[in-house]
Write a protein that binds this DNA or RNA. Structure first.
Length: 106
DNA sequence: CACATGACGCAAC
DNA sequence: GGTTGCGCCATGT
């Protein structure tokens, strides 16, 4: 267990908390901000490790393609898409998020 | 200790 | 412009 990983996850959570409503961030984006240019996969692991009990809007984190995560990680059913839509995130007809508009730009 | 897997990203086809 | 393959880091078997 590298201590660095723990710090990384912590940063990821902080960043996710900073994602404004109606916007979404990509794994690569968060990973880059957290100090891991190529740690996109680590971001995913970090999220998976994050208990939904917290106030972390993990549903605002999507992949670069604007595709939402599988339902099994969200114990709260497949709410991710619904929640995002409720927050104003625009989904394209194919089911992907319109990153052009909804991508978080800090 | 080596191989396989994963809420991924980007380059190439 | 959609699809396929390889690469990235960390963890699990």
């Amino acid at each position: 267990m590298s201590v660095d990983t723990s710090e990384f996850n912590k940063r990821i959570y902080e960043l996710v908390l900073l994602i404004p409503k109606g916007k979404v961030a990509t794994y690569g984006q968060l990973a880059l901000m957290a100090g891991k240019p190529n740690g996109a996969r680590l971001t995913g692991k970090a999220m998976k490790n994050t208990p939904i009990d917290m106030d972390i809007p993990s549903h605002r984190v999507v992949n670069a393609a604007g595709n939402t995560a599988p339902d099994y990680v969200f114990e709260s059913k497949r709410h991710q898409r619904a929640m995002l839509e409720a927050e104003g995130v625009i989904f394209k007809v194919n089911g992907n998020i319109n990153m052009k508009i909804c991508k978080w730009n800090p």
